[in-house]
């Protein structure tokens, strides 16, 4: 992509730098926006256009967000302590930590159920 324009003179070439926008696409109305990449553009409006051309040529989307890259704050990959939340066994807070429930319900001649069963009850 050419981001250069000339001012008419043969000698002077003025470089034009666009801002970088990070792009988040929402695939369907009840989905969350997901980061898919970035684009450069001179304005938020054009960033949205460019994002559509770059990321939604085939897939369906219902909404796009563009966020100035400089507005994004991130953790450092080096700072592993910040996200080191798996050093202890966390099975006590996982469904998988309660697999014995199913055997126990069986002893009581009942079937174990999950959240999905309750969600499906509502749909039925």
């Amino acid at each position: 992509m050419g981001h250069e324009t000339t001012n008419g003179s043969k000698d002077e070439v003025r470089e034009v730098h666009y801002d970088v926008y990070e792009v988040f696409v929402q695939r369907e109305i009840l989905a969350h926006h997901v980061h898919v990449g970035s684009v450069v553009a001179p304005s938020p409006e054009l960033a949205l256009q460019v994002a559509r051309e770059n990321f939604l040529r085939r897939e369906r989307g219902v909404n796009i967000w563009v966020v100035l890259q400089q507005s994004i704050h991130q953790t450092s990959y080096e700072d592993t302590d910040l996200l080191a939340n798996q050093v202890l066994d966390k099975s006590y807070r996982e469904v998988s930590g309660y697999s014995e429930n199913a055997q126990k319900w069986k002893q009581f001649k009942e079937r174990a159920i999950t959240v999905e069963d309750l969600v499906n009850d509502i749909k039925s």
Partner: peptide
């Protein structure tokens, strides 16, 4: 879903 299993446990 974890709360449910925890309570049942």
């Amino acid at each position: 879903s974890f709360h449910m299993q925890h309570g049942e446990s």
